[in-house]
């Protein structure tokens, strides 16, 4: 593989003929070399889906790179910029597959009976006063969330923060872009933070109650 500077990559990819073909082949090899590391937490190379996924990702990445060459600003190595695009495409596809059967409707239905909290923190048994304080604090926080957030904000917050659904997948189901969902959640967090301040309740106060035991 030819060792290229950023400028050489751009020049080759914008050229015609063998230089471009060689650059595309090298870029494809670079993407395929990196993907096993990127996906190591999610998909083993032994998985039957691995090769088809990485081939698909490499192809989609090359198309996107060629469409967006002019947006590369040279703030990183060109190959890092390309790998970033490959990572986004690969993880978006993996999230889509993993959460294929999830629906926000099912979350609402499940929530009628209360959301399940699968992973638990274990604290030493508190005394009765501490337990009462903890119950009161949870009720208070619940009330603030109820009063302060819109239905959409509550749904998004429960899905992402409590259920652990990726923003990308929640956004898809809400017909929003991930960027817009982040802004909606940021607004929700900001509202809650300000409301806590208005009630003279700090997060330290909340932690303090639960640290008792």
């Amino acid at each position: 593989m030819v060792d290229r500077s950023n400028e050489q990559w751009l020049a080759d990819l914008k050229s015609d003929g063998p230089a471009k073909e060689n650059a595309l082949a090298d870029l494809r090899a670079t993407i395929l070399k990196g993907l096993p590391y990127a996906l190591s937490n999610y998909l083993s190379p032994d998985n039957p889906q691995f090769n088809s996924l990485t081939e698909e990702v490499a192809q989609d990445t090359l198309l996107r790179v060629m469409d967006h060459l002019d947006t590369f600003e040279g703030r990183s190595r060109f190959t890092t910029w390309v790998q970033k695009i490959a990572v986004r495409i690969a993880l978006t596809e993996l999230r889509r597959r993993r959460w294929r059967d999830f629906s926000l409707d099912s979350l609402v239905e499940e929530n009628e009976d209360g959301i399940s909290f699968p992973s638990l923190m274990i604290d030493p048994g508190p005394d009765p006063d501490a337990l009462t304080q903890q119950s009161d604090m949870l009720q208070r926080v619940a009330r603030l969330i109820d009063e302060e957030l819109t239905e959409k904000q509550r749904t998004a917050m429960v899905a992402t923060a409590i259920e652990g659904v990726p923003l990308e997948e929640v956004a898809r189901r809400m017909n929003m872009k991930r960027n817009a969902l982040y802004k909606l959640l940021h607004d929700a967090r900001l509202r809650l933070k300000k409301r806590l301040a208005n009630e003279n309740l700090t997060t330290e106060d909340i932690w303090a109650v639960f640290d008792r035991g």
Binding site: F117, S119, L120, M121, I122, D123, P124, G125, P126, L131, Q134, L138, V141, M157, A161, I162, G164, H186, R189, L190, L192, K193, L196, T203, I206, W207, F210, G213
Partner: peptide, 19 residues
């Protein structure tokens, strides 16, 4: 005789704290 505080609630408060 153990009190259990879900990690999800802790995470939620942590996220508000960092906002």
């Amino acid at each position: 005789s153990e009190m259990q505080l879900p990690a999800e609630f802790k995470k939620l408060i942590g996220m508000i704290e960092k906002t």
